[in-house]
Amino acid sequence: CHYCTFVTVPGKLRRAGHGMFLSPDEVLAIAREGAAMGCKEALFTLGDRPEDRWPEAREWLEAEGYDDTLAYVRAMAIRVLEETGLLPHLNPGVMTWTDLQRLKPVAPSMGMMLETTATRLWSEPGGPHHGSPDKEPAVRLRVLEDAGRSNVPFTTGILIGIGESYEERADSLFELRKTARAYHGIQEVIVQNFRAKPDTAMRGMPDAELEELAAAIAVARHILGPSARI
Rank of each mutant, 00 (worst) to 15 (best):
L28K: 10
P10D: 10
Y72A: 03
T45D: 04
G85A: 08
M20T: 05
A180H: 02
K40C: 07
A107H: 05
L144V: 11
L81R: 13
M202E: 09
E164M: 09
E33K: 15
V106T: 09
E188Y: 12
N193W: 01
I162F: 09
P206E: 01
E41A: 03
G11Y: 07
A35Q: 00
L43M: 03
A29I: 09
R169T: 05
I30H: 12
L141M: 11
I217S: 06
Q192T: 13
A57D: 10
H89K: 04
T96Y: 00
G47R: 04
K178S: 09
G34S: 02
S23Q: 07
E211D: 14
D134F: 00
R140E: 08
S123Y: 08
A228P: 04
R229Q: 10
T45I: 10
T69H: 14
R229P: 03
Q187Y: 03
E188Q: 14
L43R: 01
D199R: 02
E59K: 00
G225Q: 06
S172A: 15
W60K: 00
I78A: 10
M205Y: 14
T119L: 08
M113A: 02
I78M: 13
K197Q: 15
A118K: 02
V139Y: 03
E82H: 10
D134Q: 06
S23F: 09
K178N: 05
L81Y: 06
G126K: 05
V27G: 02
R221W: 02
G85E: 05
E33H: 13
R58V: 01
E209K: 12
N91L: 10
I186P: 02
I223S: 06
Y3H: 14
R221D: 00
L43I: 10
A214N: 14
R15P: 04
P92T: 06
T5E: 11
Q101W: 12
E124Y: 09
P105C: 04
P88A: 07
I217D: 01
Y166R: 14
E188G: 02
T155D: 05
L70A: 09
E136Y: 02
S23K: 04
A36C: 07
L81T: 07
F194R: 13
M110Y: 03
L46R: 07
